[in-house]
């Protein structure tokens, strides 16, 4: 069975935020909720790196371990999804997640947050595939249509890869071999030349 993975190649990401826009548009996520974001490390300095991050669909998912209503489940494809009908908006998954993936529509008095929303790997949720209810709650279900997450599909530099972990790893390994040996494997110089 395929195990779905995201991988962002920091040597390629140019911080265009195309993935963020693609995600918002494809899934019609509410205002203020961003399932994906791009972080630029060392912004404005020589050698800055950008990397796109959303839910990484962890194997031993911390969000799932702490959820008081146990509303997470992992699909056969290794995608971590949750049931919004059960979610009580406690915020625990956000406290536990290493990547800040869980998002909340609102923060009101008495700590009411609303139902958690996060990246679904464009795989919808626990209602009928491609139904209106699914789209309203969880966004698109591209995986059921044989497609991959739109963020990766639309990445202009193909920095963001999504798909079966083995295939993603093969593509990335090929890139690394082309880029050359260590320590330039991850090299800025290898990608853009030492003069830059």
């Amino acid at each position: 069975m395929a195990k779905m993975k995201f991988l962002c190649d920091a040597e390629r990401c140019i911080e265009c935020n195309g993935c963020v826009t693609a995600c918002k548009n494809e899934n019609e996520v509410p205002w203020g909720v961003n399932r994906r974001r791009v972080i630029t490390l060392g912004d404005g300095e020589v050698g800055e790196k950008s990397i796109s991050v959303a839910c990484m669909h962890c194997t031993d998912a911390p969000c799932s371990a702490v959820c008081p209503v146990d509303c997470f489940y992992t699909t056969d494809d290794g995608i971590v999804l949750h049931d919004k009908d059960l979610c009580i908006g406690c915020g625990y998954c956000f406290y536990a997640c290493p990547f800040g993936a869980p998002q909340y529509p609102s923060e009101q008095a008495f700590g009411v947050r609303g139902k958690m929303d996060k990246c679904t790997f464009c795989a919808g949720g626990p209602v009928d595939d491609n139904s209106v209810a699914e789209y309203d709650k969880y966004g698109a279900n591209r995986v059921s249509q044989g497609k991959l997450p739109l963020c990766a599909e639309m990445c202009s530099t193909k920095a963001l890869l999504a798909g079966d972990g083995d295939m993603v790893a093969d593509i990335y390994r090929e890139r690394i071999l082309k880029r050359g040996d260590r320590p330039q494997t991850w090299g800025w110089e290898k990608a853009y030349g030492s003069a830059v």
Binding site: E15, V20, I39, T40, D43
Partner: peptide, 10 residues
């Protein structure tokens, strides 16, 4: 680092 997505700790 910097993120154009605004919010706590983004």
């Amino acid at each position: 680092g910097y993120s154009s997505v605004k919010g706590p700790e983004t």
